[in-house]
Nucleic acid binder design. Structure first.
Lengths: 148, 148
DNA sequence: ATCTATGCAAAGACTTTGCATATCC
DNA sequence: GGATATGCAAAGTCTTTGCATAGAT
């Protein structure tokens, strides 16, 4: 699947691929679109939407669908958490706050560092790179804790 | 906690810190010591030891203990898996085979890449970097699959 | 003898799925 | 009207914990 680019409209893309634009789906995409560059867990999104009567399984299934369709990308946080973000069209990695979960994008990609002999015969498929830290806001409030 | 160095004996270290050297613990460390540079999930280790009558919870608790004590390090694989490896004393990252789970160490660390302005005010605590791919052995057996 | 570690079993947390009904095109 | 998506509920999977007993020093 080709990933969503910055200028594509996720809703149009879904329709063009034969999926229906339902209420829950629109609300979900709306949150993701108004928060480009931020990551959310399924639980985060459910919390924001549950007052509308949406079910967790609906959020879950839609995020999986959007990931399969290359509309959101999946980020693995520090403690086995899975977060989702609207695809931006350019490859990047993240800073993730251990305290509040806020994320920022970084453009440096470590794959450029790996030299030929370091491949040791492996055929690369993908990679993960995340920096865990404390965001400026949480630092201001003198957050201190041992990382999980 | 300071991490185990290459020349330290994990068993002696445990004793010196007041932990008992029990049968299960010795067997567990034995596998890890004879496989330096390889990562195992708790389940992997349990499979190898269950014929001895060991319980999964014992494996689990010991791995957590060893991690807390800086004797093993925790590696997060591609599909939310947690693997453990005896600490080598030097910081490194891994190539992980999607098919068989085999790992290799790489010494390049992406943190050196990140420039001042990319921190965006974050205070780094840690980072994850793993390359997912197909190991030479699995490639030989023409393994092909969509990554998870 | 004392205190820790283990086995066993059960509880938690989170992920994933089945199915009847509601919703979209 | 036909097919997909949702709500609801339950099943799965993996992680984590409680507690009585066995085991280490």
């Amino acid at each position: 699947v080709t990933a969503l680019t910055e200028n594509e409209n996720p809703e149009k893309l879904l329709k063009s691929r034969g999926y229906k634009l339902t209420g829950p789906r629109k609300m979900l995409l709306n949150i993701l679109e108004t928060n480009r560059g931020r990551c959310f867990t399924a639980q985060d999104l459910y919390e924001q939407l549950k007052e509308t009567g949406i079910e967790f399984s609906t959020v879950y299934r839609n995020l999986e669908l959007l990931a399969d369709e290359g509309i959101v990308s999946v980020i693995r946080g520090n403690k086995d958490t899975r977060s989702y973000e609207l695809c931006s069209g350019h490859h990047h990695h993240h800073l993730v706050c251990v305290n509040c979960g806020a994320t920022r994008c970084i453009d440096s990609c470590p794959m450029s560092l790996i030299t030929e002999h370091e491949w040791q015969g492996f055929t690369p498929i993908g990679h993960q790179f995340e920096i865990i830290g404390i965001c400026p806001d949480c630092a201001k409030n003198s957050y201190t804790e041992k990382p999980g």
